[in-house]
Computed example of a mutant assay.
Amino acid sequence: MFPKNAWYVACTPDEIDGKPLGRRICGEAIVFYRGPGGTVAALEDFCPHRGAPLSLGRVVEGQLVCGYHGLEMGCDGKTVAMPGQRVRGFPAIRSFPVVERHGFVWVWPGDAAQADPARIHHLEWAHHPDWAYGGGLYHIACDYRLMVDNLMDLTHETYVHANSIGQKEIDETPVNTRTEGDEVITSRFMNNIMAPPFWRMALRGNGLPDDQPVDRWQICRFSPPSHVMIEVGVALAGQGGYEADPKVKASSIVVDFITPETETSIWYFWGMARRFQPQDQALTASIREGQGKIFSEDLEMLERQQKNLLAWPDRPLLKLNIDAGGVQSRKVIDRLIAAERGTPAETPA
């Protein structure tokens, strides 16, 4: 159950360099490739001749050629040619609105008439030279809403990520949750604490001491359909915390694009954009490696959680105050789904 009238990250540009890519998005089997002039195209991954996956074919001069019998498809879903056959009168297969922007390929799996590229979030860090970005992709066997829950309540860091970003002060510091339209924000500010290992590494990367007390912050922002941007960082204690001068802090935006594949699996595009030492490629690689390990720790927990929920679907779950961010995010999601379907919104579990 997911909104379909929305823009989702489908892939990164390098995934379609030179060959088509098949990927299921919100239950839709889609093939992505570069058409004439290198423009990204997205079609139903279904050859109208014999039903073969078009993603098993190849791209020739901007045309998608089926790898089974050579049927050529245009970017609009219409058949173009086939050796020894007349095929231009065949019905078109479905094409999907697709946009390449901010270093990602975005797809709209719902009603194409409603697909407005202006609704794609602006990402300042993707274009500004003062920012550096590094990220990756995980396939995770869980409901996309479980990942939203995970990111909107960072209390789990103390336990799942004890050796990297977790610390007891996260548990001990209250979290504030608020809703602004369709955006949900949770925030936690921890003052005069020692930085955990990942942030000690980041402080060193910005030329700062890693053995002094710091002020730490976590500001999680959920935006529909399933994107979470998390402002995180540490500043030398007493220097202004979140508002401190960049010279005395290491801060970043954790980037989380959660794209449903099915009801119980996701494509998770993760990364970190930072605004300190953007020219340091070795630091970018080090942060990416560290963040990749952190997110891999979430992977097992989420997949095992999903299995438990499938095994006991009717078992009630407790709600705590730390769950407010995830609960409010689910309310936004349910409202969007209900609007698409013309039905009342469900109460989130």
Rank of each mutant, 00 (worst) to 15 (best):
G342N: 12
G74I: 06
D14T: 03
K293E: 06
W108H: 12
Q167G: 10
I193H: 01
E169F: 09
L151W: 01
M147V: 01
I337Y: 11
T158Y: 00
K4R: 15
L203D: 05
I140S: 04
L123Y: 10
R58N: 10
P316L: 07
H49L: 09
P109N: 03
D14E: 15
E243N: 12
G166T: 06
P97H: 03
V98D: 07
N5W: 07
T284K: 12
G238R: 11
E100W: 02
A311G: 04
I170V: 11
R86F: 08
W217Y: 07
V255T: 10
D116E: 09
P196L: 05
N191S: 15
Y133A: 04
G135Y: 01
I120Y: 05
S226K: 00
W270S: 05
T12K: 14
G342P: 05
G35A: 10
D323Q: 00
R315C: 08
V65Q: 14
E157T: 14
G103P: 01
R216L: 08
G181M: 05
T39D: 15
V254R: 06
G205T: 11
R94L: 06
G35W: 10
C142L: 02
F222A: 06
I230N: 08
I333M: 04
T173M: 10
Q291T: 13
I333K: 02
W270N: 03
V99R: 12
F2I: 12
L64W: 01
A324I: 06
S226P: 02
L299W: 11
D182S: 08
A202E: 12
I258C: 05
S95R: 14
A52K: 10
R200C: 07
E263I: 01
L21M: 04
C11W: 03
F104Y: 15
Q305C: 09
F32I: 12
R178L: 13
A195W: 03
H49P: 13
H69R: 08
A92K: 13
L203M: 12
R23C: 03
D334K: 08
D215Y: 04
V105R: 03
N308V: 06
D116S: 10
V175W: 09
L21D: 07
Q277M: 15
N163W: 11
G22W: 00
E340R: 01
A311K: 05
I120H: 09
F2L: 10
H139E: 15
A244Q: 13
L146K: 02
L54R: 03
A162I: 12
L302Y: 01
R304M: 12
P91V: 07
L54I: 02
L208C: 03
C11P: 04
M190Y: 04
A338E: 12
I219N: 11
P313H: 05
A244S: 14
K19D: 13
L71E: 09
A244P: 01
F276I: 11
F96C: 08
G70M: 11
M301Q: 13
M73C: 02
A113D: 13
S251V: 05
P196F: 06
G135P: 00
E261G: 11
G238L: 06
F90Q: 14
V214P: 07
N176T: 14
I294L: 08
Q305F: 00
G325K: 11
R341K: 14
A132S: 15
P129K: 13
R274D: 07
V87I: 08
R204K: 15
V184I: 08
Y133Q: 05
M147A: 09
L123N: 06
W270V: 00
A195S: 10
L208M: 04
